[in-house]
Computed example of a mutant assay.
Amino acid sequence: MTVDAAPRVALLGVHGFGRVHLDGLLRVAGTGAVRVAGLADPRPPDPDALERVRALPGGADVPVLADAAELLDRVRPDVTIVSTPIHTHLPLARLALAAGSHLYVEKPPTASMEQFRALVAEAAAAGRVCQVGFQSFGSHALAHAARLVADGAVGRVRGIGVHGAWVRERSYFTRAAWAGRMELDGAPVTDGALTNPFAHATASALRVAGVADDAEVAVELERYRVLSPESDDTAAARLTVDGLPIVVAVTLCAPDQSPPRIVVHGERGRLELEYTTDTLTGRTADGAEVSGPPGRAPLLDNLVAHLADPAVPLLAPLAACAPFMHLLEAVRRDGPARPLPAEAVVLLDGRPVLPDAAALVRDCAENLSLFSELDPPWPAARGALAG
Rank of each mutant, 00 (worst) to 15 (best):
D4K: 10
R8C: 03
L12G: 04
V14P: 02
G18H: 01
H21A: 00
G24R: 01
R27P: 08
A29T: 05
A33C: 00
A33F: 03
R35N: 01
R35L: 00
A37M: 09
G38E: 00
G38I: 00
P42G: 01
P45K: 08
D46Y: 13
A49N: 01
E51M: 11
D61W: 08
D61K: 12
D61T: 14
V64I: 14
A69E: 15
L71Y: 05
L72N: 06
D73M: 12
R76Q: 15
R76L: 12
I81Y: 04
S83E: 09
T84C: 08
H87Y: 13
T88A: 15
L92T: 05
A96F: 02
A98D: 14
A99S: 11
G100S: 01
P109M: 09
T110A: 14
A111S: 13
S112I: 00
M113P: 08
F116G: 00
A118V: 14
A118L: 15
L119K: 02
A125N: 10
G127M: 10
V129T: 13
V129A: 13
V129E: 11
Q131F: 05
G133N: 03
F137M: 13
S139D: 07
A141P: 03
L148G: 09
G159T: 03
I160G: 10
G161V: 08
H163Q: 11
A165M: 07
R168F: 12
R170E: 14
T174P: 05
T174Y: 07
A176P: 03
G180L: 08
M182Q: 01
P188L: 05
V189L: 08
G192T: 02
H200N: 14
R207V: 07
A209F: 08
V211N: 12
V211A: 04
A215Q: 06
E216Y: 10
V219K: 04
V226L: 03
L227S: 12
L227M: 15
S231G: 14
S231M: 15
D232M: 03
L239F: 04
L239T: 07
I246P: 05
A249Y: 03
V250R: 05
V250S: 00
L252Q: 03
P255K: 08
R261F: 12
R261E: 14
V263T: 13
L271I: 10
Y275T: 01
T276M: 15
T277I: 09
D278W: 11
D278G: 07
G287Q: 04
L300F: 05
N302Q: 15
L307F: 01
L307G: 03
A311M: 10
A320Q: 08
A322H: 12
L327K: 06
A337N: 07
R338W: 10
R338F: 07
A344W: 01
V346R: 15
L348A: 12
P352M: 06
P355V: 12
R362I: 07
L374H: 04
L374T: 03
D375I: 14
G387S: 15
